[in-house]
């Protein structure tokens, strides 16, 4: 059976930085309610090298993260392995994880990145009002996308 992973990452203790985690949790609830057993979710503060192992267990993966980039509400894009990413010491980019997965296992799943525009980054668990709107829009898009994926692979 083909499996799909929605992986939200960020720090929910830093306001909108938790957008990806919250989205993954909402997708988890939605999948459970609809008995979509092929949809799995995971969350973490940030991505790291062991995620390359997890990726190898799925046919499709959607990473979700907060974004400070100049985008309107959210951006959804396919991801390719990136060997050239300049990465920080203790976290890595989704594309880098994909590259590591490819090198270690000679294969990688169809992978997408969902950026959700955030605005506030203070020490609070509350997502900002503007970001909640973006989260709702991203959620609406992603549920439709996941249903199309399930149909395609059924």
């Amino acid at each position: 059976m083909k499996k799909i992973l929605v992986y939200g990452y960020g720090n929910p203790g830093r306001q909108d930085d938790g957008l990806g985690v919250l989205l993954a949790e909402k997708i988890g609830d939605w999948a459970k309610k609809n008995n979509y057993a092929r949809i799995h979710t995971d969350t973490n503060y940030q991505l790291n090298i062991e995620d390359a192992y997890e990726l190898n267990n799925y046919n499709a993966v959607i990473f979700a993260d907060a974004s400070v980039e100049e985008i309107d509400t959210f951006l959804f894009e396919p991801l390719k392995p990136d060997f050239k990413t300049n990465f920080s010491m203790h976290s890595v980019s989704p594309a880098f994880i994909l590259g590591l997965c490819q090198e270690m296992y000679k294969d990688f799943p169809d992978t997408f990145l969902l950026h959700i525009k955030g605005f506030e980054w203070e020490f609070m668990e509350e997502i900002s009002e503007k970001a909640v709107k973006n989260l709702d829009l991203a959620l609406e898009f992603l549920t439709a996308f996941l249903e199309s994926l399930l149909k395609k692979n059924s």
Partner: peptide, 17 residues
């Protein structure tokens, strides 16, 4: 020294050199 510089927020678009 493996320093950790208290950077808990990591949103996309940061960390250029």
């Amino acid at each position: 020294y493996d320093p950790c510089l208290s950077c808990a927020t990591h949103a996309l678009g940061q960390m250029p050199l």
